[in-house]
Design a protein around this nucleic acid. Structure first.
Length: 904
RNA sequence: GGGCGAUUAGCUCAGUUGGUUAGAGUACUACGUUGACAUCGUAGGGGUCACAGGUUCGAGUCCUGUAUCGCCCACCA
């Protein structure tokens, strides 16, 4: 049988993916005979396209899924997508705008129809692309956060939390995006430092010619000022507390109040207070019973509460005008440069505006305490561990979660208002209560999964659903159990929950991971997963985060086309540092491509050299195994042990390195080269063929989780050759190799290692002496150890092939014109008449000598230190002594022959 | 302003609980192609493990401090 000389990944990959899917190997069913291994995919946004972050994330998940499947687990990897409220609404609005269709001209229903249409067309892009990567997701279980079942879970959770008093409505300062015209949670705001100005403004004291000075970075907000605050202990201003100021431009009267929040050392020590547009001022306002004047509309334009001249102006235009007018009136004292952090919308990057509005919140503290405990106690394990601290810090300082969004795309709040009750209540209380305790008890609010027929209080049917939708993460945080059918209790949920390992990027630790843990504990009474693996963030060669806007993310599909999916997967696993960022450039995929090529060609060589009618099995052959066979079998076993260990530790880099080292350096470079002579011997050939196939097929299994396609192709190609009783239909359902150290191989391993050292030493001398590569040399061995000489004689055919030694003889005198090496405690003379350069040879020996002397010196220092001898473990002392002896023997030999050389 | 992490070969990174002579890939140098593979082979050069202290018989590894870089959190107008 002969393989194609060149591996064709493209054809192979689509062929086997189709095969696996048709055979339903990815699918999982409740199976009490097996332990489950469950993962949920971090659902990509429907607006997304595959980028390197997804590649890394899904490669890791797929490695785990395939490894666990082969290890006998009922493996279920649930895929799906996230509706991504703001992001999707923005994308669809933009795409409609190109056709001159604007959301403001559409009804909610019409707009949503467009979004669903868009979703059907583009929403599955990433999920489709994941197949090219080889992802073994359980596709029939694919879920979408707006699916009926998941929406039901969302409503169920909302109602439960509301009934428990953990959800409340209130009028608070929230982060407002004037472009998206919605509230955002604190986490959705990205802070960046801006070079801003700090304007110092005079506020005249009523009835005097005096004024005070306040400093602000947002002068336009002064139109909503309702006070100026000073620190109550600030001696400079004590006398002013209670006095009245004339707010310039707006020409309103505002009081000077005392509040401990004010830092006397900052600015002038006087703060203008805008309760409706600044979180601090909001609280100062509450404490001092100040009115709240909302000065902007939802788009960030000045509203009817400001003087007419500013109405309708954008907040920044207004800022300019305000500064201008203040200057004209000589009320601007000075303008300082000032650096401060400004919040931006994480979806559209618009500067957010703190804004007073009615929103819904979740009380987080009670849930956070349990969720923190789950991680600190180790019930949930983080890898890398350092994320525990980050998690802990957030959990201990958690704020309530603003969950309402003024959008159309998303889960509508299961909240209904009775207009009748509301009117009655509003007649009684003029302004809305913003105390959560009372607000949620307001009668006109009905929280229910379904639209109630009538108001339970007054019987009115004039009910209206809250127009807002929920934060996208309000559905994502239920993902580990909503995807399994919750709130319906069923067999899947019982069997698969809790899931095992969550693989995700650390940038959503708060958005998603933390909240899933809270939700799991709150609604299932159990952690949602046992382990969390935080994969690296992929950066470009300059260390910049890969992003669409920078255009620095190579398209993974291009990489797959150019290098193959296996190459990409291997490279990503091989490079990915543990918990650090990974710098990526597509050229790095040469690592994976070259390795695939090596695997392919080694297999090709093996298939060229095996007969179809092999009957042997490892037991019947054991007595015929040569030391080299035993060596590679030992190495192979070691590789199983380490690969398994690394995969269990979620150290994918470790696993990839072990496999690379084992297959390439040990199997190809040594074993395959070494046994070539034995292929000429009919009897020996059978043994070699067996070991070839045994190690190859099993190595393929070890490599399959990382490189699924090429390993399947080669596994199939070797089918029928290895005398296994029954060969699995596919490598992906074959079983993971088990470490099985065979005792009694130690002496063979030692023997082979001795010969290897020997061969390497001869190669080095040959290159140093510029011996023509094909020229055979003769060597003379000087050793008192007869056994060693016999070993060397035995391996002459190998040495002929691997370091071109044509003849070996014994002798205790250095022949003339020979180079000398000491390896494995044996003196070797390489006959190089007419070739040897005595100057070079002497230099070489001198260099060797220097190194050995240095080593001995170091060892002497240690071994003559009584404190070392006293404290170090005996084993360590013995080891060093033996090493010293070895070096001394070597030095003696080299020195002796430097003298001999001198004489020649 | 707080917290976390990083600093090892030209580059990208490994380095398990402290214990030989600090590794890999890549790049570089020399040599080599008629039968597995030039996406290859053989050999080689290249590191006072950021710096300064400390603990220890022994530190790349543990502790403290410094520097540089990065990330996260944060209501200083």
């Amino acid at each position: 049988m002969e393989l194609e000389k060149v591996y064709n990944p493209k054809e192979t990959e689509s062929k086997w993916y189709k095969f696996w899917e048709e055979k339903k190997y990815f699918e999982s069913h409740v199976n009490p005979a097996k332990k489950p291994f469950t993962m949920v995919i971090p659902p990509p946004n429907i607006t997304g396209i595959l980028h390197m972050g997804h590649v890394l994330n899904n490669t890791i998940q797929d490695i785990l899924a395939r490894y666990k499947r082969m290890s006998g687990y009922e493996t279920c990897w649930i895929p799906g997508t996230d509706h991504a409220g703001i992001a999707t609404q923005n994308v669809v609005e933009k795409s409609l705008a190109k056709e001159k269709i604007f959301r403001r001209d559409l009804t909610r229903e019409q707009f949503l129809e467009y979004v669903w249409k868009w979703k059907d067309q583009y929403g599955g892009t990433i999920i489709k692309q994941l197949r090219y990567l080889g992802s073994s997701c359980d596709w029939p279980r694919e879920r979408f956060t707006l699916d009926e079942g998941l929406s039901d879970a969302v409503k169920e959770v909302f109602v439960r939390l509301y009934d428990k008093g953990l959800i409340y409505k209130g009028k608070y300062i929230v982060n407002w995006c004037p472009r998206c015209t919605t509230a955002l949670s604190d986490d959705e705001v990205e802070h960046r430092d801006h070079e801003a100005s700090l304007w110092h403004i005079k506020y005249p004291l009523k009835g005097t010619n005096e004024h005070i000075v306040v400093a602000t970075t947002r002068p336009e907000t002064m139109l909503g000022d309702t006070a100026v605050a000073v620190n109550p202990s600030d001696e400079r201003y004590k006398h002013l507390i209670g006095k009245t100021l004339i707010l310039p431009l707006a020409e309103r009267e505002i009081p000077i109040v005392a509040d401990a929040f004010v830092d006397p050392a900052f600015g002038t020590g006087m703060v203008k207070v805008t309760p409706a547009h600044d979180p601090n001022d909001f609280h100062i306002g509450k404490r001092n019973n100040l009115p709240q004047i909302i000065a902007f509309d939802v788009h960030g334009k000045m509203n009817e509460n400001v003087p007419e001249i500013y109405r309708g102006l954008d907040r920044y235009e207004c800022r300019k005008k305000v500064v201008e007018h203040l200057t004209e009136k000589d009320l601007l004292v000075k303008t300082d440069k000032h650096k401060n952090a400004v919040g931006h919308c994480y979806r559209c990057d618009t500067v957010i505006e703190p804004y007073l509005s009615d929103q819904w919140f979740v009380k987080m503290k009670p849930m956070a305490e349990k969720a923190l405990e789950a991680v600190t106690s180790g019930k949930i394990q983080f890898t890398p561990e350092r994320w525990v601290k980050v998690y802990q810090h957030w959990m201990e300082n958690i704020n309530d979660w603003c969950i309402s969004r003024q959008l159309w795309w998303g889960h509508r709040l299961p909240v209904y208002y009775c207009n009748n009750c509301r009117q009655q209540a509003e007649a009684q209380i003029s302004n809305l209560k913003s105390n959560p305790e009372t607000a949620q008890k307001e009668k006109w609010i009905i929280v229910s999964k379904e639209l109630p027929k009538k108001c339970p209080h007054c019987g009115s049917t004039a009910l209206e659903q809250d127009p807002d939708v929920l934060d996208t993460w309000f559905s994502s945080w239920l993902w580990p159990f909503s995807t399994l059918g919750w709130p319906k209790e069923n067999e899947d949920l019982k069997y698969y929950y809790p899931t095992d390992t969550l693989v995700t990027a650390a940038d959503i630790i708060f958005f998603w991971v933390a909240r899933m843990i809270m939700a799991g504990l709150e609604f299932k009474g159990e952690v949602p997963f046992k382990k969390v693996y935080f994969n690296s963030i992929v950066r470009d060669a300059q260390g910049r985060k890969m992003s669409k806007s920078l255009g620095n993310s190579p398209d993974p599909l291009d990489i797959i086309n150019e290098y193959s999916a296996d190459a990409l997967r291997f490279t990503v696993a091989y490079l990915s540092p543990i918990g650090q960022d990974v710098l990526f450039a597509k050229e790095k995929c040469e690592i994976g491509r070259n390795f695939c090529n090596k695997i392919w060609n080694a297999s090709r060589f093996i298939l060229l050299n095996v007969d179809n009618n092999m009957q042997a099995d490892i037991k019947s052959l054991d007595s015929s195994l040569a030391p080299m066979d035993k060596w590679i079998l030992s190495e192979y076993n070691q590789a199983i042990k380490e690969t398994t260990k690394y995969l269990d530790e979620l150290n994918f880099t470790g696993a990839a390195h072990i496999l690379h080292e084992f297959f390439w350096s040990k199997f190809c470079d040594w074993y395959v080269e070494f046994v070539k002579p034995r292929l000429q011997d009919e009897k020996q050939k059978e043994v070699v063929q067996y070991v070839f196939l045994y190690v190859l097929t099993n190595s393929l299994k070890l490599m399959h989780p990382i490189m699924p396609f090429i390993t399947e192709e080669l596994y199939q190609q070797t089918k029928g050759l290895l005398p296994e009783k029954s060969r699995d239909e596919s490598i992906m359902i074959s079983s993971w190799p088990v470490f099985n150290a065979v005792p009694g191989y130690e002496s063979s391993v030692k023997e082979v290692e001795f010969v290897m050292e020997f061969i390497k030493a001869i190669r080095t001398v040959r290159v140093d002496m510029n011996v023509a590569p094909q020229k055979q040399v003769e060597i003379v061995i000087n050793t008192a150890d007869k056994e060693k000489f016999e070993i060397i004689q035995k391996y002459l055919p190998n040495m002929t092939l691997m370091c071109k030694v044509g003849k070996v003889s014994a002798g205790s005198v250095k022949p003339r014109f020979s180079a000398i090496i000491v390896a494995g405690g044996v003196e070797i003379f390489i006959l190089l008449e007419g070739i040897i350069d005595f100057e070079k040879e002497k230099a070489r020996l001198d260099k060797n000598c220097q190194k050995v002397i240095k080593d001995i010196e170091g060892l002497n220092n240690k071994l003559s230190d009584s404190r070392f001898l006293q404290h170090a473990p005996e084993k360590e002392v013995e080891r060093l002594k033996a090493f010293k002896k070895e070096n001394e023997d070597k030095l003696a030999s080299i020195k002796k022959y430097i003298d001999v050389l001198q004489a020649e």
